[in-house]
Write a protein that binds this DNA or RNA. Structure first.
Lengths: 167, 167
DNA sequence: TTAACTGTAACTATCTTTGTTACTGAAGCT
DNA sequence: AGCTTCAGTAACAAAGATAGTTACAGTTAA
């Protein structure tokens, strides 16, 4: 892969998961928040829709919403729905059969890809969209804390050490 | 990432590991076996050399050889030496700070990248170059078995079912 | 000193990814 | 019915990444 589609997909889904359970957003609105073109978002939503992660509705008052709860969506589903799934590419030119190594290297590289794929599945599969939302929350709280530190809202010039808590 | 550099690197290192312990090959020779340009190989070897995986020597009778034993080289080292290391890319345009999600999504995506990275390290780190050579061996034996089946060297037209074993 | 190498820069070609415009058909509204 | 607002997709343009090529400086052995 090596595209930003996964980033944009996670961002989009986080937006959909953020508000009410069945909140629906229009592609234009998402595009604006993600700073890209609406068609880019529609292409993405189209893939996510095939994977039953979102549901889209055409027509006036249309838009897209999550097909299931954020707890039930994990990052590997998203990854799979969106990317070809191969982390590295094989040779452009097939190596010569006449060489002992060349004859089998591509099959072996395929096995290595499978191993990698399993690892990605294992690690991304563990993270749900709900957890991503939580991470975003936490991140925001940290930012707020830092901001308060900078502007000295905490009273006093000795505010060098600050707790990580959300104040 | 999403390039074929990793494939070509593994192929190259397999070639170097194949013969005698301190076998040295010229970039032209490798390029020929991998079916690419010698400069592409040199660029790769340059990176591998920085990572202390190979040692190169300029001048007549020069070339490159492994810097350590195939058992001591693992695929994660190679991966790291060669690729930027990021499996997916962040948004091209930074999302607006004004949105709760947009403000933190990139930091969170960074954390996800770290998780992925750890998973890749874990899985690729387990596989040594020596094991790759073994996989290639096994693959070659399987091929031989299949070939013998096709050409009917096994005597008889009724050879429909064959064991998967190496001959 | 010459010939055979590596290492790199600079350039071109090719392919991939992203952005854009334009259109079709779906769904609600008047 | 006719209008408006939306998703889905095709077709094309722009931008960026990857790979291939040429050229040359510096290194080493004979």
């Amino acid at each position: 892969m090596a595209s930003s589609r996964f980033s944009i997909a996670v961002h989009t889904l986080a937006l959909l998961a953020h508000g009410a359970a069945d909140k629906s957003l229009k592609s234009e609105a998402i595009a604006c928040l993600v700073k890209t073109n609406a068609v880019v978002i529609r292409r993405l939503l189209s893939d996510l829709s095939c994977a039953k992660i979102v549901v889209s509705q055409a027509g006036a008052a249309g838009g897209s919403r999550l097909a299931k709860k954020p707890e039930e969506i994990n990052l590997f589903e998203i990854y799979q729905a969106i990317e070809g799934g191969e982390i590295f590419t094989l040779h452009r030119q097939t190596p010569p059969e006449s060489c002992d190594i060349g004859r089998s290297i591509q099959a072996v590289l395929g096995e290595i890809q499978d191993v990698l794929d399993a690892a990605v599945k294992e690690s991304l599969g563990k993270i749900s969209l709900a957890e991503v939302l939580q991470m975003i929350e936490t991140e925001n709280e940290n930012c707020r804390a830092k901001y308060q530190l900078k502007t000295g809202r905490q009273a006093g010039k000795t505010a060098n050490k600050v707790s990580n808590e959300g104040f």
